[in-house]
Amino acid sequence: MKKIFVSALAFDDGKSGISNYIENTIYNLAQDNKVSVALLEKDMDNFKRKHKNIHFILFPNILKSSILNLIFHMFFLPFYVNKDYDFMFLPAANRRLMAFYPIFTIATFHDLSQFNVSNKYDFFRMFYIKHIIPIFLKPIKKIIAVSNNTKLDMEKHFNIDSQRIIVNYNGVDKELFHSPKGDFEKIKEKLSLNKKYFLYVSRLEHPGKNHLNLIKAYEALPLEIKDEYDLVLVGNQKENSHVIIDHIQNSKDKESIKILGFLENEELPSIFYNAKLFIFPSYYEGFGIPLIEAMAMKVPTLCASNSSLLEIGKDVSAFFDEYSPLSIKNCIEEVLSDESKQEEMVAKGLVEVKKYDWSYHANKIIELYKTR
């Protein structure tokens, strides 16, 4: 049994793909190890997957400020890591690193979409990503990339030796995403889901997550399809979400485009399961956990032709040109009109999703420590 120090100071209130990663990885590490987790006080309720082997080291909520959080994490948190721990794990290295590492450290890097999506972040955040992160990654000997695509991006943009980067795929919570949870009729009533629907699960962020081209594709669908199917968007509102909301408010189809906001994990399986199609138009993804969650819930998946989506969706998903609403529209119509194709996609997805397991991911982290 190892003693592991983990920083979860970039937990995003439990409302992002990274928080999904942090929670599931820590929970699975804790099955056979003692895990001490640095966490903000406000996130104790947000961290759902607790375990007897998880001990929380709580820090004041003043650190919810991104700048204060980053400075504290960089220069002060290392002093909380003593030699009693076997190793330290940083699950969000693309956001939070340290000025020095008091013990052996393994870090996970999720994506470098900032280099591939114009105007994703402001000048100062891009400066941090381009010039600060590479400096403080140098002392870390074992860096996990969640896809081959992310590994290649790190080699290209940070000039990191490929031997230091180990691909370790994300997982899917098989306890949760295997059958619908709860009473879907009550969920439908709560969320005002009155029709069948197409689904996109992602934070509402513009332009990176490409909601606008998906909405434009939906608007261009034949009236008989829109009469039968709504477009449902699930996710926390983030950078420039007002652009998406304003477009919907001015759309002739605004009554059929539903923004549900952030949903608890327990509600998501039913939301996935009852979707007719899952559509993932993002301009760039380091992995894209909702894609495998949709596969696990037996939903045909339609994807943008880029980044890790090509890697994870290969041989399962139908692909479109994410820059073209017409291409998205045509892909929706093609899959929707072919029930046998949908059945084939579901069957292939159930086979593919077996490759993605959080317990395997956690075990590989332990093996990286043992073979250091």
Rank of each mutant, 00 (worst) to 15 (best):
F11P: 06
Y356H: 00
Y85H: 04
I132C: 14
L63R: 03
N213A: 11
F184M: 06
N240H: 11
F89Q: 03
K190Q: 15
I332K: 06
I259L: 12
Y128F: 13
K355Q: 14
L221F: 11
N61L: 04
L223Q: 14
V81N: 07
I57Y: 08
V316M: 10
N265Y: 10
K83W: 04
S16I: 07
L63G: 01
I67E: 04
E155V: 15
H131I: 04
R49N: 11
L193D: 07
A318H: 13
L368C: 04
N28W: 01
G288Y: 00
G208K: 02
E185M: 09
G208V: 02
V35C: 01
F109V: 12
N53K: 10
D43N: 14
V353K: 11
Q237R: 15
L233C: 09
N194Y: 12
I165G: 05
H361P: 00
F11D: 04
F87N: 05
E293K: 09
F79A: 12
N20L: 13
H178G: 01
E189M: 13
I215P: 01
F287Q: 02
I26Q: 02
V201N: 12
N274E: 10
L193V: 11
Y80Q: 09
E189T: 15
N170Q: 07
I332D: 07
F158P: 01
D12S: 11
P139K: 14
F319Y: 14
Y229A: 05
K216P: 05
A92V: 10
E285M: 00
N148K: 10
K42E: 15
K138R: 15
I67L: 10
E205R: 04
I160D: 03
N265S: 15
V167H: 00
P281F: 03
P180A: 00
S7L: 07
N24K: 02
Q114D: 15
K15T: 13
Y197T: 10
A30C: 01
N306V: 09
L176Q: 06
P91V: 12
E189V: 08
N213L: 08
I4C: 04
K354Q: 13
N149D: 12
S270A: 15
L260S: 06
V353F: 07
K42P: 02
L204V: 15
G261S: 08
L263K: 15
I62T: 01
F124D: 00
S270N: 13
H110N: 08
I215N: 09
I292D: 01
H361D: 00
T301W: 00
M98L: 14
S162P: 09
I271Y: 06
S282H: 06
Y121S: 11
P78I: 11
V316T: 07
K238F: 12
L204S: 09
V243P: 04
S256C: 07
L350V: 15
N33Y: 05
Y80C: 14
F272Q: 11
F109I: 13
F319N: 08
Y128C: 12
C331N: 12
K341M: 13
N265M: 14
P300T: 01
